[in-house]
Simulated assay, not measured.
Amino acid sequence: MLLGACTPGGGTGKAIGGPAQAEEPSRVAIPSLGVDSPLMRLGRNGDETVQVPPPEKGMTAGWYRGSAKPGTRGAAVIIGHNATRDGKAVFHDLHKIKEGDVIDVERGDGKVLHFTVTGTEKAAKSAFPTRKVYGETQEKALRLVTCAGDLDADGHPVENLIVYAKLA
Rank of each mutant, 00 (worst) to 15 (best):
V35P: 02
G155A: 10
H81D: 01
L33A: 08
P8C: 11
A15W: 07
G100P: 06
I79C: 05
L113C: 11
Y164W: 00
T7F: 00
R44M: 11
L94S: 12
D154E: 13
A165T: 03
E56A: 13
K57R: 12
A127L: 09
A20Q: 11
G87L: 03
G119P: 06
V77R: 05
T130G: 08
L33Y: 02
K14W: 01
T7E: 08
E23Q: 12
Q138G: 15
V52N: 14
F128Q: 07
A5Y: 00
F115R: 11
L39I: 06
E106T: 15
A168D: 13
L151P: 11
R27G: 05
G155F: 00
P31H: 12
D150V: 06
T49Y: 01
H95L: 09
D36W: 02
A141H: 05
V52F: 03
P31N: 11
T84C: 10
T12C: 14
P157C: 05
K111N: 11
M1I: 13
L42W: 00
P157A: 04
N160K: 04
D152R: 05
T72I: 01
A20F: 07
E106N: 07
S67N: 02
K88T: 05
K98P: 03
Q21K: 15
D36Q: 11
A141F: 02
V77L: 05
L161Q: 05
R27H: 10
A15M: 13
E139Y: 03
P38V: 03
T146L: 03
S32Y: 04
N160Q: 08
V77K: 07
C6G: 14
G17I: 14
G34I: 08
V145N: 10
K132H: 09
V35H: 02
V163I: 10
G13Q: 11
G66D: 06
I78M: 10
L33F: 01
G155R: 10
A5T: 06
D101L: 07
A75H: 08
S67Y: 01
A89W: 02
T118D: 09
T72G: 09
K132P: 08
D101K: 11
V28A: 13
K166S: 15
G74R: 04
V158E: 14
T60E: 07
A22N: 13
K57H: 09
V117T: 12
G18H: 12
D36S: 14
A20M: 13
E159S: 11
V52E: 12
V28I: 13
R41T: 08
A22H: 07
V90S: 11
G10H: 01
K122E: 13
N82R: 15
P54E: 06
H81A: 09
F91I: 09
I79W: 03
A5S: 15
L2P: 15
G100R: 10
T116W: 01
I30G: 06
F91H: 10
T60F: 02
L42Y: 00
A15G: 09
A20I: 10
K88S: 12
